[in-house]
Computed example of a mutant assay.
Amino acid sequence: LGVVFPYHPHLGRYNLNFHDAVQACIGQNAAVASFDQLLEAWKGGLDWCNAGWLNDGTVQYPITKPRAPCGGSNNGPGVRNYGHRDKKSRYDVFCYTSALEGQFYWLVQPDRLTFDEAVQACIDDGAEIAKVGHMYAAWKLEGYDRCDAGWLADGSVRYPISRPRKNCSPTEAAVRFLGFPDKGQKSYGVYCYKAAK
């Protein structure tokens, strides 16, 4: 059992050629998703309007709620397929990660942290700063739910909501993404990951 998640680096959307896409997923404790994995995720409700690489070198994206900017509102729901693309072309990527081998957790801290402080805080706790794949696996496969924005290893800030509620993620269970803030900002906590012994 695993979970598919869309990914783009801090440079912004549509910045990954195929080689970079493979590395990006590896860097987030994941691998580039297969078409079958994306199809399963779509059946499970994944709706994402940005095209991403799959492991066969095709570029696709899953739409459950058809709308004009995402391949047109006249087309039914489905996985939109751009077909095989030149591997130098740039898109996002769909990554796939399986169940966690260790523990993903919010590190209780008295203060908000800069990115470097966040990295060090996890190390001081005998862990590492969590990767995006760790968060998705904990959220989807373990029902992890926390309404606190925290740093992750790629410099992004996210939080996982499995029980939608006001002020957190009111309409859907989701990993909320707050972008890639200035790493010097003392505005966030941190999610850590402790590998199984």
Rank of each mutant, 00 (worst) to 15 (best):
V3L: 05
V3W: 05
P9G: 06
N15K: 08
L16K: 01
F18I: 07
F18W: 01
D20F: 02
I26Q: 14
I26M: 12
Q28A: 07
A31D: 14
V32Y: 02
A33P: 01
Q37C: 11
Q37H: 08
L38D: 04
E40Q: 15
A41E: 05
K43V: 13
G44L: 13
G44N: 14
G44F: 01
C49S: 15
C49K: 07
W53R: 05
L54V: 15
L54Q: 04
N55R: 11
D56T: 10
T58F: 03
Y61P: 04
P62I: 06
P69K: 10
G78N: 00
N81M: 10
H84T: 13
S89F: 00
S89L: 00
R90E: 13
D92K: 10
A99Q: 15
Q103N: 15
F104Q: 06
Y105F: 15
V108M: 10
V108A: 14
Q109S: 12
P110Y: 02
D111M: 02
D116V: 07
A118R: 03
A121H: 03
I123A: 14
D124Q: 12
A127D: 10
A130Y: 07
K131P: 00
H134R: 00
M135A: 07
Y136H: 11
A138P: 08
W139C: 12
K140F: 11
K140T: 09
G143Y: 09
G143M: 08
A149S: 08
G150C: 13
L152V: 15
L152Q: 08
A153K: 08
A153Y: 02
D154L: 09
G155K: 01
S156H: 07
P160L: 13
R163G: 12
R165F: 05
D182P: 05
K183T: 12
Y191E: 03
